[in-house]
Design a protein around this nucleic acid. Sequence first.
DNA 1: GTCAAAAGGTGAAACGTTTCGGTGTGTCGA
DNA 2: TCGACACACCGAAACGTTTCACCTTTTGAC
Lengths: 338, 338
Amino acid sequence: MAATIKDVAKHADVGIATVSKYLNGGKVLGKNSIRIDEAIVALNYKINSLARSLKTSKTMTVGVLLPSLENIFSTSIVSKIENILQEAGYSTLICDFQEDIILEKKKLVFLGDRQIDGMIYMPLKGCVEGLKQLQGNGIPVVLIDRAIKNCECDTVLIDNLNASYEAVEHLIIMGHRRIGIINGPDTIFTAEERMRGYYRVHEDYRISVDQKLIVCGDYRMDIAYEQAMKMLSAKNSPTALYVTNYEMTLGALMAINDLNLKIPEDLSFIGFDNLALANIFKPPLTIVVQPTSEIVETAARLLLKRMKGNQDGFPELIRMKTRLIKKNTVDKPKTLDS
Amino acid sequence: MAATIKDVAKHADVGIATVSKYLNGGKVLGKNSIRIDEAIVALNYKINSLARSLKTSKTMTVGVLLPSLENIFSTSIVSKIENILQEAGYSTLICDFQEDIILEKKKLVFLGDRQIDGMIYMPLKGCVEGLKQLQGNGIPVVLIDRAIKNCECDTVLIDNLNASYEAVEHLIIMGHRRIGIINGPDTIFTAEERMRGYYRVHEDYRISVDQKLIVCGDYRMDIAYEQAMKMLSAKNSPTALYVTNYEMTLGALMAINDLNLKIPEDLSFIGFDNLALANIFKPPLTIVVQPTSEIVETAARLLLKRMKGNQDGFPELIRMKTRLIKKNTVDKPKTLDS
DNA sequence: GTCAAAAGGTGAAACGTTTCGGTGTGTCGA
DNA sequence: TCGACACACCGAAACGTTTCACCTTTTGAC
């Protein structure tokens, strides 16, 4: 039904190979290029990317594998990646695995079978075998946000430890000694690092850590809400609270509202991510922000480089710095208990 | 390098056609199926979906084309679509066009050239020619959230008019007569419908409309912020405000905060979308919520049906109902000016 | 005018699958 | 025992492209 390169060749009265060469940017005689162009228009010819891919074994498609699409961090990742890769002619195949490690493996295999040219992967557990197989087939993978242990792989992430360090340090300097943290599950890379920052700054300032002020959430809003409720309504509750991702920040704020705690009078607060939203709260939130655009852009450019065959410095581990945006939710504590 | 179906056939000592038939669920002798299975494992054979697609001209890929990925509505759309289609064996190719009508057309063409089997499309302007061409090639398209005029196409959207009607009616019943609306740009289908609902309820209750209380925003937060600032700080400002999407709801709330207006004492407020977030505000927001899951599920199932070749009832126009969630941001107005 | 080199043109083979038409084997009733 | 009929098997052709290896034309220095 649709016109093929043969039809174009016939219509333009040139050889197939000539048309192919022209389509791929090769040099052909001026008059031939004109006739080919005419033929293409006349026949409404579209190149069949399937046939081309079969021959070249390049699909010009990259897979993006994420734990979830339903959070703001993932969304901006996808959006940015798509736009950068598109410019380079690549399509973006999306998979999310709903934070489910069974599904994680399945979708990794699925993408692998789909003949992608490369992959951006934000692991949950981190499916090492699947990853190695992909790499074994010559498909470059760039990890984003989270590293996987025992695995040689390009990785772009943020300096989680110092992100926490800086946030908690700010609270300490303001005089807080009982600082609560609602963190992600300790099985997740980022959460573990963020926790370490919390501990380290306590150590550096010789402040003892109260385990009651530490909770492992699920990076999800509802759980964080309940955990915040519990922690903040217990006796000896913290004078400041630090929450380590956006969804949990919302959950914690909801709890704070429900408990009628005033920020920063009753409780100092530092949240995470989403600058835009932080400003609509009253008072505006002090938060840790990730350089999302830069992370994604770096990862995408690295992947493009690898897909071109450039293996310089493999495996690269790139760490980006977060920023602590100081607004109005941190103040001196009311009572100074050591 | 990788094993082909020929290798499998040779290893299993059967014909190529037999292997192919078996792989596609056809009947083969028991002993043959065992030997083929063995061969597949032994050679680590993976079917080459490219070659298969070339032959069958089915790519098992659907395109998803959206104005933007950076808002909560789009995100849940993508996530749901991906999961439903994946179950049916389809991959999801994502494109967003950054609310840019030039890019919209370009990406539509891009997806068309990529030999997708179907498409979910949330139009901005609505690129009719591109759409018709796709359909002409036998590729089903399901529009979501927004219809396109003069275009025969399956469409799944919400009853925008009655969404607004119901929200504004609620305000009217509570006694409000000066009700502000911050709406999307009137070039956008949903915004136009939502506006019509605003007018109609005013008409039905014989309340005259003050054009000063109507603003066309951009469905974006920053613009809405400024527009809300202006409207609410003008004299004769409204006693109630209705905002017609999520991002603008945030922007308006930010303005309300900055103006130190108390909700609902100084101003009644109805927002849009995102139930989860609505609850963390203080007081919890009265909002209009869309049945996002149902919309997407309906659209995805419809697309699957079309891709199977079932053309029953084409073109279908499916409208879903919104719900008005009444919380604590609507009260009687302080002063009753007619 | 000659000839080598350069530039450009060409069909056929190959990528790995599905499917068409044809062949072989086994079963079963008469 | 024979024919008829399923049933499953099988190789070859085809999908539309790229690329190899070869061929033709043009160019320009002598």
